[in-house]
Amino acid sequence: MYSIIVVPPPTTEDQSTRTQLKLAPGERLTFGRSADCDVEIPHKGVSRRAGEITAQGAFWILSNLSGEQTYVVENPEGAGEHMKVGPGRLDAPVPFEFSRIVLPAAGDLLAVEVWAPRHDYLRSEGGLDGATTAPAFSVDRTKRYFAVLAALCEPRLRGAPHAPLPTVDQVVDRLRPNWPAASRTSVQWNIDYLAVKLRLKPGPDEADTGPRLNGKKESLVSLALRFDLVREDDLVVLAASPSGRAVR
């Protein structure tokens, strides 16, 4: 029942698989240099108790417990969108679905990532009324993950129901016109995030196959098509736009 995921800065040991800490609404997590913190950031430039993250429903709040450092919370997909949380500021609400808390630490910038995959988005057919039957997931059609999902679904939406799914490299090529920085890693990251966001249940056949992801892509696409998360008219997000800003 978690609503927030915190990904601490990579340590030397686990460069490949970064830890994810899941917080349910109301749960809090402290970070800082001291070993008492839930997330220990062993860097001289970081305060002993640097800050606190609290999950608050679908969003989260940040407290800056340091004496003098201002933290910047960036939206990595937001074209420079960011907010500043000054020293001593408590419980500042953060509105982004993806965030990176940047801690200035003696010349280095350390990043703690925080995801809020439970953000809600209005669906065309539903209102805000709690008595309306609503789908269990909502996606932001302006986010990169949606473009990745659309690219994965594209062959089947274009009328070939049993078409093989595009490979990660093909997805990268498809998205590059609108997203020049697209790479294997970033597309892969978005696929993993989608699995978290859509709460994909791991299939029995992928229980111990480790990093193999074919099953995950397949399940994502069948879920997305079954519940009309991506429709044919959504494929416009893949079309190259003159300004290059259609997909951020």
Binding site: M1, Y2, S3, R118, A136, F137, L198, R199, L200, K201, G203, S219, S222, L223, R226
Partner: peptide
């Protein structure tokens, strides 16, 4: 509550 953010398989929840 157990269905609020429950896992969803390809057959539904």
């Amino acid at each position: 509550p157990e269905l609020l953010w429950s896992e969803i398989g390809t057959r539904g929840r």
